[in-house]
Amino acid sequence: MSVLVLGGYGAVGAHLVRLLRAQGIPTLAAGRDPAQADRVLDLTATDSFRTALAGVSTVVNCAGAENIRLAEECTHRGIVFIEISATSDYVRALERVDGPAVLGVGLAPGLSTLLAVDVLSSAPGPVDIMIGLGSGEHHGPAATAWTYRLLGQHFADPDGTSVRNFTQPAHFTIPEQAGYQPFPALRADFADQHRLTREYAVPVRTYLRLDSRLATTGLAALTWAPALRALVPQRMPGSDRWVVLARSADGPTRWATGCGQSLATAAVAAATVREVTRHRITAPTWIHELLEIGTLRHDLAAAGIRL
């Protein structure tokens, strides 16, 4: 097999290429820069993308390009398309692709999804998922742009009401190992809450906070005036520590924590690529249909992630 990593020298892609090559998996980094890319391509040009697919069995999209045609170009050829995006509308479109695709691969969705499924295996729900991100980490422009796109936007709650991103604060008990001070997390539209709510027929809700109270409060304020995001400083206070947890109303809490969300996303993606080589994927598949949190322990520990 051969893996093509779109954005293969970016924040997540560079880690993923390194991890896959360390496992002996032939991997090509793709992008526009001929000095860094094994295959030079322009994702806005269909012919360029088609040419880059020669001899490839799996494509991992780490470029931040949410273009359904990229997935279709792969799946029509029987090439597995693995997506790390968290955007709900885009992921729903990928669920309708005719062919092999793996969705919700990364930190959130991905690790967050697997933790929630583990909770649901022993408790009936509802389940709350909390994603805590280090506001001091430079995770890449695509991740920053994704967060800011949520400002002022609404999504559907499991009870049918409309929720504005970065509102409805809720408190979570965070493990001491994460190094997070106690203050509320805010509702945010991550794709796995919708998938798991449909699949398990119980409310699953996702929340986001940063390790900085100031930065989290800023999101809560900007969601009412998103045009002011241009005033946000380039460098935010905070660290690169992240934490993801899932809790049920009357049952267990599962959590994971580490440093560097780019590395964590790449570690989950690398495990997914390896799993794809063991299973024949023919249709859109979510990560929890391939992996369980227990099977990831070795990969996560190697990336400095604690469960």
Results as ranks from 00 to 15, higher is better:
Arg247Trp: 01
Gly258Tyr: 04
Trp242Ile: 02
Ala256Trp: 02
Thr282Val: 15
Thr272Val: 09
Thr197Pro: 04
Thr253Phe: 01
Thr277Asp: 05
Thr272Ser: 05
Val243Tyr: 02
Ala270Glu: 03
Gly260Arg: 06
Leu210Phe: 14
Arg209Phe: 04
Ala225Leu: 13
Arg241Lys: 12
Leu208Lys: 05
Thr295Pro: 01
Val276Gln: 05
Ser212Asp: 05
Thr277Ala: 09
Thr253Met: 08
Val276Arg: 04
Arg229Met: 05
Gln261Cys: 08
Pro226Arg: 12
Pro203Asp: 12
Arg229Asn: 10
Ala191Gln: 10
Pro226Asp: 09
Gly251Ala: 13
Ala267Ser: 07
Arg274Trp: 00
Gly218His: 01
Ala267Met: 02
Ala270Thr: 06
Val276Ile: 12
Ala264Arg: 07
Leu228Thr: 12
Thr272Cys: 06
Arg229His: 10
Ala270Cys: 05
Thr295Arg: 07
Leu231Ala: 15
Gly218Gln: 09
Trp255Cys: 08
Thr257His: 11
Arg274Asp: 01
Thr197Met: 02
Arg213Phe: 00
Ser212Thr: 08
Leu290Cys: 04
Leu245Ser: 05
Ala215Thr: 14
Phe190Ala: 03
Val243Cys: 13
Arg241His: 09
Pro233Gly: 10
Gln261Lys: 13
His279Met: 10
Gln234Pro: 01
Ser239Tyr: 10
Leu263Ile: 13
Phe190Tyr: 12
Ala220Gln: 12
Arg280Phe: 00
Ala225Asp: 00
Ala283Lys: 15
Thr206Pro: 01
Ser248Trp: 10
His288Asp: 14
Thr216His: 00
Thr277Val: 01
Thr285Tyr: 03
Ala266Asp: 04
Ala191Tyr: 05
Arg209Tyr: 01
Leu263His: 11
Val232Asp: 06
Trp286His: 12
Pro237Gln: 12
Ala225Ser: 11
Ser239Met: 11
Gly294Asn: 15
Phe190Gly: 00
Trp286Gly: 00
Ala191Trp: 02
Pro237Glu: 14
Val273Ala: 06
Leu210Trp: 07
Arg213Tyr: 03
Ser262Arg: 11
Gln234Cys: 06
Ala256Gly: 08
Ala249Asp: 14
Thr265Ile: 04
Ala264Met: 05
Asp211Phe: 07
Leu210Ser: 13
Arg229Leu: 04
Thr277Met: 03
Arg278Tyr: 00
Leu222Met: 07
Ala221Pro: 02
Pro284Lys: 09
Ile293Pro: 00
Ala283Gln: 15
Arg205Gln: 08
Thr223Phe: 02
Arg229Ala: 10
Ala225His: 11
Leu228Ala: 13
